[in-house]
Amino acid sequence: MEHQNISSEITYQHHIEDTEFKKRIRKTTILLSVITMIELAIGLTIYTMHKGEHPSALLVLMFKGMVCILTLAKAYYIVSVFMHLGDEIRNMIMTVVVPLMLFVWFIAAFLWDGNAFRTSRNRYDKFKMEKTMQHPIKQGDTTQHGFGG
């Protein structure tokens, strides 16, 4: 084969057929466009629901969840086809994908706490007066002169 050895680290080179490649790119482009259209349609559905009298919170949430899943699908196609990660050796895919799992706990913990901020903000009573009083010291208390007496 005529292609030259690019680097000593590389053992062999992929060769992708031209026609097959073009077909795959066309397919992915159409797929990404279609998913984006569906996302936009869902976005507009949520918009009309919000304009309505009593938007069902559950339904809105479900639609939003669907958009999230569709976005992940889009991300999968971009990374795997456009960035050619899907064509790499499995172990390399793992070294990129596995660390991204960290996002699960990253997102979960942060949003969980964000939600807790709201709860405490809503429960916060601006007019509450906090008072502290010295506990009456009884005879025989050994702790009055500091910790441990």
Partner: peptide, 21 residues
């Protein structure tokens, strides 16, 4: 190391139930 960061924040006012995890 990447999962335990909030143990520095137990008294910061974060959600105590999250703190439990």
């Amino acid at each position: 190391a990447l999962l335990v960061w909030a143990h520095h924040m137990f008294v910061s006012g974060m959600n105590p139930f999250l703190g439990g995890v």
